[in-house]
Nucleic acid binder design. Structure first.
Lengths: 183, 183
DNA sequence: ATCACCATGTAAGCTGTTACATGATTAA
DNA sequence: TTAATCATGTAACAGCTTACATGGTGAT
């Protein structure tokens, strides 16, 4: 029943406890580059998450006419984000993929590799699908067909870029040597 | 007052007249790859566009318990999409950029070049902004910083890819020789 | 003094998704 | 006969944006 925004908040709180205001700032920059939300969406969502036992707050000293609430994620909330990240279901959109990657730190490197491989697989099949769309590539006059081919070319370039990025990320994660095994 | 969906419908009808059902099909594939909509959104929007004098319909023969309506765009509607495409205002999202490019055929090649150059400029500055975000690139353990850098790298790769695509598209359009000038 | 930042909340409106509702024709 | 395609509409709900509302502290 948790929305994507809910998982975003849970994940951000897994980094460190924060106020709603802090979260709103993060959801402008840097998280807002791929997943944004205004404070009017955040405060009610935090209340909802607390009602579900996924976060808890303590009142702290602060400026303003109302109480300043510092939220932190509960064990239940942590399990919830983890389950969301591990459930590689349907096609997810661009923005959500970036959010998922941003929150991968709540998983182990091995688990993260599985998620990235699933993302990679999805892009691999989308790319193959796009390549299968045959648009005659003969020299073309100005018109609907020309711009349609431009969008298809973008789709192909996008998926290729994403595949390369996934490979890069997999290499980075796989290349990590656990501290105990280092010389 | 027209929504993005409204412009999408207007643009599609500028290609050729269509029924709401036809439009719904296009907004699944191929338009749906970047801008999708269900029929429950399309029918009310067509009614709204007709109320604003941007489209007109004629009843044609067809299967089904209700009248089959074939819509076509009016001169006013055509002006509306054109104005939308030419108004290069704020940052637009990925999906909308693709929609705009898909509908560029309603403009002249020279006008289209202006639009693509504006898109290019936006991506150029976003790329520069991303490159200005200094994240220390030292060898990193598993954690929030590592995945954050991964998302930034994606942003940079994305903008670079988009720039190259814009250049490609500009070359294609600029390379078009008007029919009258061909040997 | 005025502005920016801290800090929280509600309400109205628009967009988009999913479900409800109807019914004819054609192909497997 | 069962499913897919054609064909149109409404209703309920979820998500997001914009505006309303309040007020303290610190810097210019």
């Amino acid at each position: 029943m948790t929305s994507t925004l809910g998982y975003a908040l849970l994940g951000l709180l897994a980094r460190e406890p924060a106020t709603g205001y802090d979260l709103a700032r993060m959801l402008r920059r840097p998280v807002g580059y791929f997943w944004s939300a205004g404070h009017s969406q955040i405060y009610p969502e935090l209340a909802r998450l607390e009602g579900a036992g996924l976060v808890r707050h303590t009142v702290v000293e602060g400026a303003g006419p109302r109480a300043t609430k510092r939220y932190r994620v509960t064990a239940l909330g942590r399990r919830d984000v983890r389950a969301w990240l591990l459930a590689t279901t349907a096609e997810v959109d661009e923005r959500e993929v970036l959010l998922r990657v941003y929150l991968l730190f709540v998983l182990s490197p091995a688990e993260a590799v599985g998620v990235v491989e699933a993302i990679r697989g999805h892009h691999r099949s989308t790319l193959q699908h796009y390549r299968g769309i045959a648009l005659d590539d003969s020299p073309q006059d100005w018109g609907p067909d020309l711009v349609e081919r431009a969008t298809l070319r973008w789709g192909i370039a996008f998926e290729e870029g994403r595949l390369a990025w996934c490979d890069d990320l997999l290499t980075t994660i796989t290349g990590l040597v656990p501290p105990a095994a280092r010389p």
